[in-house]
Design a protein around this nucleic acid. Structure first.
Lengths: 245, 245
DNA sequence: GTCAAACAAATAGTTTGACATTTATATGTA
DNA sequence: TACATATAAATGTCAAACTATTTGTTTGAC
């Protein structure tokens, strides 16, 4: 019925005021907040209190603080990358395992392909997907596994983007980012890599032909299968995969 | 190739050490951190620095701080609710609109129903779903719209839980929580409420009959339709719906 | 014994003033 | 011009004191 009142701590009040200012647009990205001393004068509190508020805002991810001359607290652009990072950090403290991430990703991408993409996909999108595959192949030839992984994940991220729904794109990116660390810790065999390439190509081909249902199923199986391999490989290398990330 | 070193700020170091201690399990939920003074002695820094670290950890959501005797910083249980809250707060600062949330939710639930539920659903699950509907109806009769909404959202949350995938359950809950504020701000007409009841019932009936594909489609259309109504009603009441949440 | 008020102890919240460190920019010099 | 150096404006840190809040304990009245 009622919610408990708790308005201790001046720093909290300051945090809220700054957040509101950002929400309203009174503070735009790259804007500089007044210096700690000035803020102290404005809010009528000491520098220590201001600094506590700044630490909260910084942890929240809405400002960055630079030292030195021309330093200070600057409003951070809350772009997709920043949001994904923030959410990822929170999720790291939750008891989420790699298999859970994998299934969630596979499901999400299937839904994206089967239901969200058909009305939106363009030949240019297909072209981008193919480019991702080509880039990954080039990195494979150069034995650059980090970049190869990046391009392969890029294939899936590109898929998600076609949905044009920021919430879905965000959720997908969070899952992919958290998953990627597991991929980085196992060495992929050439056959695994080649299979990924051919499955990615198969998905693009099906998309081009308008066979979205099939493409979705191939994608789901692809992710499930690759994830299963990662889990197996991780076990061989005694890596934690079923524990919290 | 290399990443820039940045070892400024002792409070950051302290934050990381505490986070690691929590990750390792050295600090369990409800454990009390030493007092500020003691922490200062342990880390060899002043109380001010300790307090800055504590503000960060608090904003991160891993501790709560109580004042007074027997007060101090206590490790917070990172249960689903806390994680959902944290992620929701981050998302509030992103440019996410209600329609985007609505489509994401509709898609997510369709995938849950069509692909994730079939192998898992039990008669008990159906019973829980029916109970949610009944509770909502009771609240409707009592003209308690807040509780009615809560039970109606509970129907969908119960659905998500059947997936048994914490990542999916989490994503779904975040979206539902963020969406709910829009529902709370418009007054639903009796006909809208009745239609929701009948659609929820229809979904349960289809689930009982094993017609998952159909249930998924009904659910998708139900969410899309209700959301559309919310958008319309909000416009009439001059509420922001297409701007950032 | 029970209740309430007064008191004590522990802890977070805040202030003040000082000094250290970092960084961009201006200044001076070869 | 190029490079070193000084300067100024920030943040980063410290120490010590005082305030506010919460909780436990004692004391006293009934």
């Amino acid at each position: 019925m009622f919610r408990k009142i708790k308005q201790n701590r001046m720093s909290e009040d300051i945090v809220n005021q700054v957040l509101e200012a950002i929400s309203r647009g009174d503070l735009a990205p790259d804007d500089k907040l007044p210096s700690e001393k000035e803020l102290g004068d404005i809010f009528g509190v000491s520098r220590v209190t201001i600094r506590e508020a700044i630490r909260s805002l910084e942890q929240f991810g809405v400002i960055v603080v630079r030292q030195g001359s021309r330093g200070g607290a600057y409003v951070k652009k809350m772009d997709q990358k920043a949001v994904v990072n923030q959410i990822g950090n929170v999720l790291k403290m939750a008891n989420v395992t790699f298999p859970h991430l994998a299934i969630a990703r596979a499901s999400l991408e299937r839904e994206i392909i089967v239901e969200l993409i058909p009305s939106r996909i363009t030949p240019e999108d297909c072209e981008k997907l193919v480019q991702n595959i080509d880039r990954a192949k080039a990195h494979f030839r150069n034995h650059d596994s980090a970049q190869r992984l990046h391009s392969n994940f890029g294939f899936h991220t590109t898929l998600a983007r076609i949905s044009e729904n920021p919430v879905i794109i965000l959720m997908h990116k969070v899952i992919v980012d958290l998953s990627s660390q597991f991929f980085e810790n196992v060495e992929a065999t050439p056959s695994m890599v080649e299979r990924t390439f051919s499955q990615h190509l198969e998905i693009v081909d099906l998309l081009k032909k308008g066979q979205f249902q099939e493409a979705g199923e191939v994608c789901f199986r692809h992710i499930a299968q690759v994830s299963e391999t990662i889990v197996e490989k991780s076990k061989q290398q005694s890596l934690l995969v079923s524990r919290r990330i």
